[in-house]
Amino acid sequence: MATAGICLSTRRVRYVVAPPVVPTFAPVPTQCIVGAAVTLAATPAGGTFSGPGVSNSRFDPAAAGTGTHTLTYSITDSLGCGTLSQQVVVNRLPVITPGRDTTLCADLRQPFQLRGYAPAGGVWSGTGVTAGGFFTPPNTGNRGGVFPLIYTVTQGPCQATATRTVVLAPVSSQDVGLNLPECAAAPRYAGLAPFDCPLSPVLLAPHATYRWDFGDGSEPSTAAEPTHRYTQPGTYRVTLTARYGNCEVLTGFSPVEVGDVFMPNIITPNGDATNQAFQPRFSCRPASLEVYTRWGQRVYQTNNYHNNWDAAGLPDGIYYYQLRDADDRRAKGWVEVRR
């Protein structure tokens, strides 16, 4: 169409209006602040998730923090577009008070109800305790014990625990064994001077105090598990005064027998069953032995000596030895072989 002095033209433009898309967004249940990240799901696929704590289609409760959060799913393509949101609640952990630790003396063995814990509604677990918190002291053979009791509270998706400790003090006693390793080279002794003696109480418990008397006139120790060096051979009586709360426990240990180092300078391997082999009291630890003639020729060597060298096949005379134990204690000297 044309008119005088005016030029007009027409063009048809076609607009396509995409229909709205109604996505679905799988509900996310209430989460706990310490819970693992959850995978978000929605349809149709190909959209984008957004909101606090959202990354790569996953929702992390710890990153979002406690509270109520809005998560959104958005999708736009050639066929349509749409968004859908939902709210997710992240709960904090319940705050638990398990009550004060308890110490029972040797003469206090009656069952009792635990008190002072909060919030109510939790469950107890551990040795000697019922779910409701009724504690019956176990039989420890008078040696006492340390019993951690766990209080568990569940609130929605959150579960928290706290520990309360019950200490049963041992009874006072005498001649308690020290549980020292045997001195294979001299079984009658705990060790050979200088001897480092490791000590441990009958019961090692939190918040207990200790006072050790080593029986050799040295200063007492307040360490829980001291190692004391006996520099001289002798018989020593170790005593311990331990305090567990208001309970005082006195323990007397079996005597500590400390032997002297003895290096024989003669053996008589003549078949009379006396002094047949070289048997030094050198160390309680495994030791090596080397034996040489006076001219430096090695005639015997072992990395684990058992006090059994008897100069078999060798003439009488003077031989020189070197001993070295697993702690690098060393000794050398000479021994005469006389049949």
Results as ranks from 00 to 15, higher is better:
15 Y>G: 01
86 Q>M: 03
49 F>K: 01
261 V>G: 00
17 V>F: 13
263 M>Y: 14
234 G>T: 05
21 V>T: 12
238 V>D: 02
44 P>L: 10
17 V>Y: 09
203 L>E: 08
181 P>M: 06
303 N>H: 07
148 P>Q: 00
333 G>Q: 04
327 D>M: 11
190 A>E: 06
26 A>R: 02
318 I>Q: 03
179 N>D: 15
11 R>N: 10
131 A>Q: 11
170 P>L: 10
247 C>T: 02
279 Q>P: 06
321 Y>P: 07
101 D>Y: 13
131 A>S: 14
196 D>V: 04
173 S>Q: 11
190 A>R: 02
183 C>G: 10
334 W>Q: 11
129 V>D: 08
302 T>Q: 02
64 A>V: 09
152 T>N: 11
314 L>Y: 07
120 A>E: 05
170 P>V: 07
247 C>F: 10
327 D>T: 08
220 P>C: 12
231 T>D: 14
185 A>W: 06
100 R>M: 13
210 Y>P: 07
147 F>H: 03
45 A>W: 04
319 Y>E: 04
273 A>P: 00
233 P>F: 12
86 Q>L: 02
315 P>K: 02
30 T>N: 10
258 V>N: 02
309 W>H: 11
157 P>W: 05
333 G>H: 06
123 V>L: 11
166 V>Q: 04
115 R>T: 15
18 A>N: 13
48 T>C: 05
159 Q>D: 01
158 C>D: 05
176 V>L: 10
287 A>G: 00
232 Q>I: 03
16 V>C: 03
134 F>C: 11
143 R>G: 06
236 Y>C: 06
258 V>L: 02
300 Y>G: 00
263 M>G: 01
325 D>E: 09
40 L>Q: 01
205 A>R: 02
247 C>R: 01
219 E>M: 13
321 Y>L: 05
117 Y>G: 10
68 T>G: 11
23 P>R: 00
177 G>M: 05
130 T>W: 10
261 V>E: 00
181 P>H: 07
208 A>C: 13
158 C>R: 01
110 Q>V: 15
216 D>A: 03
56 N>F: 14
173 S>E: 04
99 G>K: 05
285 R>A: 15
136 T>I: 12
245 G>N: 07
124 W>K: 03
88 V>W: 01
55 S>F: 15
14 R>K: 09
214 F>G: 00
311 A>P: 03
47 G>D: 08
155 Q>G: 09
10 T>F: 14
157 P>L: 05
7 C>Q: 12
184 A>D: 06
338 R>K: 15
118 A>R: 02
